[in-house]
Computed example of a mutant assay.
Amino acid sequence: MASVMVAAQCVVRAGDLEANLAMHIRFMQHAAEQGARLLVFPELSLTGYEPTLACGLAQGPDSGLFDPLRSMAREAEMTTVVGVPLRVPGLDKPQIAACVLKGDGSLGVYTKQHLHAGEEVFFCPGAGGELLCIDDRAVALSVCADFSRAEHPAQAAERGAQIYASSVLIGEGGYTHDSALLQGYA
């Protein structure tokens, strides 16, 4: 049986953690009903892509905000990737993170390595993260601008990734270009 892996295409409310958390839970429930084993949300899905608000909305990896999401992921035995500005000790700005809520209840973190021009004012670059294993398949994560650099998916393939899952926010103006890049990597 093939693994069901899905991307959540959703409308996020700017800065509204409560509403966005409820929306994530609804998406997770629906994906679980469909037998999903991996669900990936867009970049900064819990807060919205709001760089000027990021510092105030940043969460630590031990944030209680993740508790209901972790419980749902564990209950559904489904790995779920959610986006949030991540507060990291020793850094003056948050990192753009894809928090990985695993089906066993554990939490992993992937941090965006390559920032778009202007993002460095609000965010620090990250270091990436480990490959995920979903039903014996190696999955590499990326967040938005990471995939715009051909070396990123190439390095994922060299590390053994069979699937390249990207958490992105793509506007109408960039859709054609970004889709072509991703299709080329596939």
Rank of each mutant, 00 (worst) to 15 (best):
S3D: 10
V6T: 13
V6P: 01
A7T: 11
V12Q: 04
A14K: 10
L17K: 08
L17F: 05
E18G: 03
L21G: 07
M23I: 07
M23F: 00
I25Y: 02
H30F: 07
H30N: 15
A36Y: 06
R37S: 15
L38C: 06
L39Y: 10
P42R: 10
E43T: 14
L44T: 12
S45P: 09
T47G: 15
G48W: 01
E50Y: 03
A54K: 08
A58D: 06
A58S: 15
Q59K: 15
Q59M: 12
G60A: 14
S63C: 03
L69E: 05
M72D: 09
E77M: 04
P89N: 01
D92N: 08
Q95E: 12
A97S: 11
A97R: 04
L101I: 07
G105E: 07
V109K: 08
T111D: 02
L115Q: 02
E120R: 13
V121A: 13
F122V: 03
F122S: 13
G126Y: 00
L131I: 07
R137Q: 15
R137K: 14
R137N: 10
A138I: 00
V139Y: 06
V139D: 08
A140N: 02
A140R: 01
S142M: 14
C144P: 05
H152Y: 14
V168Q: 05
G173S: 12
H177V: 04
H177I: 01
A180N: 03
A180Q: 08
L182H: 13
G184T: 03
Y185C: 03
